[in-house]
Simulated assay, not measured.
Amino acid sequence: MNHISLEIFQVVAEEMSVVKAARRLGRVQSNVTTRIQQLEEELNAQLFIRENKKIRLSPQGKKFLVYSKKILSLAEEARQSLHPGEPNGVLTLGSMESTAASRLPEPLAAFSRACPGVQLRLNTGPTRQLTDKVLMSELDCALVSLPRGENGEILCPENLNYHPLYIENLRLVLPVAMAGVKTVGDIREGQLATFAKGCTYREIAVGLLSQTSGSGESIQIQEVNSYHAMFACVASGTAMCVLPQSVLDLLPLPEGLTILPAGMAITQLVWRQDFSSPGFDQLLSVLQGASDITP
């Protein structure tokens, strides 16, 4: 079992297609197939289930994928540690959609200028999914909004460090049809356009509507994949949404919408306690420089 075989296995697992994996890796299809077969023979385990010209990970393949990502991540970290003065290699960063849109363009441009040898890969998603990926070494670090407990304490998983970076003032945006609403407490029913479960802003919105108006059970959830789709639902009059003011500032505002305060959230950078690399250290420094939270 070598480094190249693990990389090939990981790409095939991500693409769920040998043809697509071969194209992405710049290899011929037969070579990718042979590498996977050799790896399965070496492990004495079936990593993929093949049926009707399609493949999917077997239970053993899913388990092995977790370990292979950890091995590759550790190998990359070890390689970079030998050249601490020269940030290079791959750094995988996760981010909430809102942060990627409103907070990252300038800092990532500055990071690219400071570390031209680092290949930064950006993935977006809700907080819980991103946090899980950091824990599983699928991401090196991520910008998330960690949930809070009943006493207001930040709930950070074990084995993770976090650093607060941005304060987000949340806004509840109501469609034209709800123009008569003056406070959140006036809302009795409606539809909330939001991201999938695991989004901290979704939890805040549902909790706010439930606590202030008792309407939590009357609020229907419409899941969307982007803030543009979310805002389109509001503009069309079919739903309300909660989003940060920093994102709202980037969007065109149709006339007649009602915007109400919906609380505050903190964006943190999270990373594994055992993770370190020159590229990550530089990224953290750049993000700290763009932070609106005073140390």
Rank of each mutant, 00 (worst) to 15 (best):
L57Y: 03
L57D: 04
S58F: 09
P59M: 03
Q60F: 05
G61C: 11
K62N: 10
K63H: 14
K63Q: 13
L65N: 09
L65F: 04
L65V: 01
L65P: 08
V66P: 11
V66N: 13
V66G: 10
V66H: 15
Y67P: 00
Y67I: 15
Y67Q: 13
S68Y: 04
S68D: 12
S68T: 15
S68H: 07
K69G: 07
K70M: 14
I71D: 09
L72E: 08
S73C: 10
S73K: 06
L74A: 14
A75I: 00
E76D: 14
E77C: 06
E77P: 02
A78E: 13
Q80E: 13
Q80N: 07
Q80Y: 04
L82H: 00
L82D: 02
H83R: 12
H83A: 14
H83Y: 11
P84F: 15
G85W: 10
E86V: 08
P87H: 08
N88I: 01
N88E: 14
G89P: 00
G89V: 00
V90K: 06
V90P: 01
L91T: 05
T92L: 12
T92V: 12
T92M: 11
T92F: 05
L93P: 04
L93R: 02
L93C: 05
L93G: 04
M96Y: 09
M96T: 15
E97K: 10
E97T: 05
S98V: 08
S98A: 15
S98M: 06
T99C: 13
T99R: 01
A100W: 12
A100N: 05
A100F: 10
A101W: 08
A101L: 13
A101R: 14
A101N: 02
S102A: 14
S102E: 04
S102D: 05
S102M: 03
R103F: 15
P105L: 10
P105S: 06
P105Q: 08
P107C: 07
P107Q: 04
L108P: 00
S112K: 12
S112P: 01
R113Q: 05
A114G: 03
C115F: 10
C115K: 05
C115M: 05
P116C: 07
P116E: 02
G117C: 06
G117F: 12
G117I: 08
G117D: 06
G117L: 11
V118R: 02
V118G: 01
V118C: 03
V118A: 05
Q119R: 12
L120E: 02
L120R: 05
R121N: 07
R121T: 11
L122A: 02
L122E: 01
L122P: 03
N123Y: 08
N123V: 14
N123L: 08
T124M: 05
T124N: 01
G125C: 06
T127A: 13
T127P: 10
R128E: 15
R128K: 11
R128N: 10
R128F: 12
Q129D: 12
Q129I: 14
Q129G: 10
L130P: 11
L130K: 11
L130S: 04
L130V: 05
T131K: 00
T131A: 12
T131G: 06
T131W: 00
D132K: 09
D132F: 01
K133Q: 08
K133P: 00
V134P: 01
V134N: 02
L135W: 06
L135M: 07
